[in-house]
Design a protein around this nucleic acid. Sequence first.
DNA 1: GCCGTTTTCGGCCCGACTGTTTTCAGTCG
Length: 574
Amino acid sequence: MEQVTNEEVAVLLYEIAFYLELSGDTFRPRSFERAARSIETLSESVMEIHRSQHIEGLMKIPFVGEGIAKKIDEKIRIGRVTQLEELKVRFPVRLSELLTVESVGPKTVRVLYEQLDIKNVEDLEKRAREGKIRSLPGFGNKSEEKILKGIEFLKACKGRQPLGTVLGLAQHIRDQLRFIEGVKSVVITGSLARGKETVEDLDLLAITSLPDVLVKAFISTSEAIHVYQKQNTRVSIRLKIELNANLRIIPEESFGAAQQYFTGSKEHNLALQRLAQDKGLKLNEYGVFSKDGQTIAGTNEEGIYTALGLPWIPPELRENLGEIEAAREERLPDLIKHGSLRGDLQTQTNWTDGKNSIEEMGKAARELGLQYIAITDHTRSLAMVGGLDESKIQEQGREIERVNRKLDGIQILKGAEVNILKDGSLDLSDDALADLDVVGAAVHTNFNMPQDEMTRRMIQAIRNPHVDIIFHPTGRIINRRPPYAVNMKKIIEAAKDNGTILEIDAYPERLDLKDEHIRMAVDEGVKLCIDSDAHSMAQINYLSYGITQARRGWASRNDIVNTMSLDELLKHLS
DNA sequence: GCCGTTTTCGGCCCGACTGTTTTCAGTCG
């Protein structure tokens, strides 16, 4: 018997769907996808259903029939699915890898494999550089160029993973190690501690009286697949998620210095070292020392900064972008704190591409201590997810009113995520927009317009008096899609002139606005909001990534509208 | 392969864009 989570079953079904699509099957892929989505949203465990009710029970899951139920049964009983194994023999390609290249889909993978024996991205790049792709039927110079561009973009992101996929795991490992015998302290350092949007590896520091025990625990974590180096005070392992994790064991007297040093950034540290030098001091990973070698600080970070004549600087600011000067002049921003949001202004439900109902999302938000949550499903031009038209929006409004009457302790706001069309108009009538509490507008189509055209398009939406917020203003997907061309300075100016809020979308793959743009907006006094963009109950937790991102952009509580009480917010929006 | 029946097989979210074609296939959202 295999232990499998619903998530793993869903991934398996998606994988089969992709291979079926590759093999030219038209409708089965849709079936497997629908079943996968259904299992993702399921509250009961598939394992548990299988244990108590076998295949018959599985068939009661929506969109799971006999065929798919048997595949799940096979996976649980023997750990693999014959059909998928056979598909992989027939098409020995690294499908998921190839599909990450933009403009490459299953059909293209098939042609590339059959005609040029391309099995992975490396083969693909080689063949494209040799000019072999352009001579394939149905391909040309442009397709070849596009593929190479896609590979370039992929390479540029390679090895760096979104904060959101790493931070939870890092915290989990840290918390496990804290309970190991002899351990006095474990902290996360590096770009992860600074909350950078992508991270290259996971760095931990620890104090322990029993180094051997801690090292052993670290390398035997269930997340590890390989041990690179193992010394008394330093170990590196490879994690399942294709990332390295490093653990250093530090003596207590220099722990603060090490924490400061390994948190970085390099630029921040170099600037601090220059500052130390000016004061006739020496700063390194062991502490702050006087000329004659006397230890001045080292046990904690505050001490290091104090010794240099500075207040402690929050890790999110340590990029040498003016924070040291600000610290010296005692004008560091009072950064927004975790836990200070009172609401969430962008969430989707099962009325479109979300997984949960309005009521479930409301309850989940209440659980997290929020006071209000806006339901902002997609509107009609996003047909793919069943975007809502005017009458559906009205119907949803009535459902929201019903849920509001039922639930105490949370207010659900009527909203929408309207699409900004090519000409800058919106895909929902002004009358419909006027009935909503929160209108977010966003670009979802026609991504590759020239910069000035895209900027004009977005500014027109900003000027629409019904639009409260511009959602994910640059449209980027980290490691997958670059931002569209837009002049952010002009957008920020327009937002300022029209009192429009710009969003910090906390969805880990978006983090949009990015830190430098947040700082530009803050400097201009433009109001921001931090939204989860949750597509399920659990994803409302993403808000914390948005707070980290806001901190990296020097934002204070006052800059973020959803720190307001509901009354204040509604007044602000009206 | 699943669903919903006009219960035993037909229909399956859709629209725009792109690059290749000269009427369309594949990708993407």
